[in-house]
Design a protein around this nucleic acid. Structure first.
Lengths: 170, 170
DNA sequence: CCTAAAAATGAACATTGTTCAAGAAGAATC
DNA sequence: GATTCTTCTTGAACAATGTTCATTTTTAGG
């Protein structure tokens, strides 16, 4: 993404882009905000009736979004602020909202556990799924091939839940 | 990293940097090669006597390397080639060598399984661990806090192995 | 209409990757 | 040692891109 391209696409001058977004970071962050919102909308569309089915649905929805918008997700997770400025709070809050959707079903599946423990478990599961998907879609390095990603991701979720003591029959 | 800084640090001209590395990509890739080699050396230092202890050791070594050289690992995994040129084969091969160290103990722990299956499982586990560590060290977004990363990572490995049917007593 | 505030503009600047003609250094031959 | 040829090194100049800001244009108020 280039400032000049944005200006041309918007039919305005370079200066106007700066008036609107402040600087290049502001431009990127605006895109990232829309990315989080689009992702959240997609995750919210997953049925929440059965927690196990919901977890699989969320993983699948995340995979779908990552497949269709690989660049946007990379921008969201890999962008570094200029001059070590802090990451905007509002984006963090939006990501947390999206994450809460993944946290909820795990809480239901592990009713006996310490809530703080479940919070860390869900963070870990999200990071793991994110890693599998993002490396898998890179098609380089050590990665699960994209065409197998869907079923293997489901398998991963099942395996990990089994390790946590969740029985599939429930 | 800037070409001019490299030239100054090396005590030569800008042109000499280009004679040596070709272009900016060549410079980055040279750094990435050293990164893979350093990582491999570190992983090879993990004792291979007991496969379960080895897996934990490898995860821990990976975390240690990522903690000490966050920028190098990011460069290795996030760098995109200019002009969509293909990723160098030799680096891929070196990464595969490093990865084989993680694959081997899992093969020993799952002797009954189809080798292709174990290959995919180990890729998935590596991607998962990579995701947990890289997001965790970012300290932003949904991530496992760095100070808890070590023990939680071990817990993750145990949980996933349990899900795969590996008993800790062995 | 006139004036003041607000917004838009794009030329000019700073940084950084890249090129390449010119010069320096070295090797080979006599 | 001198000459020539080859190779290496240099850094000025160029290209691409983020950034600034004095100027111009537009809008709003009276």
């Amino acid at each position: 993404m280039k400032v000049r391209d944005v200006a041309e696409a918007a039919g305005c001058s370079i200066g106007s882009v700066y008036n609107e977004f402040g600087d290049f970071d502001g431009l990127i962050l605006t895109v990232n905000r829309e990315t989080v919102q689009a992702l959240t909308a997609r995750l919210k569309a997953v049925p929440a009736d059965d927690p196990l089915r919901q977890l699989h649905g969320l993983a699948d929805a995340y995979l779908g979004f990552a497949t269709e918008h690989a660049n946007l997700l990379r921008s969201l997770f890999e962008h570094r602020m200029e001059d070590d400025r802090p990451f905007p709070e509002d984006i963090l809050a939006m990501v947390m909202d999206a994450f809460a959707l993944m946290h909820a079903p795990l809480v239901r599946l592990l009713p006996g556990r310490d809530p703080d423990d479940v919070a860390l478990l869900s963070r870990m599961m999200f990071s793991a799924v994110h890693g599998i998907i993002s490396l898998g879609l890179e098609e380089r390095m050590v990665a699960v091939p994209p065409e197998m990603l869907r079923e293997r991701l489901a398998e991963f979720v099942d395996t990990h839940l089994a390790g946590l003591g969740v029985t599939r029959s429930a």
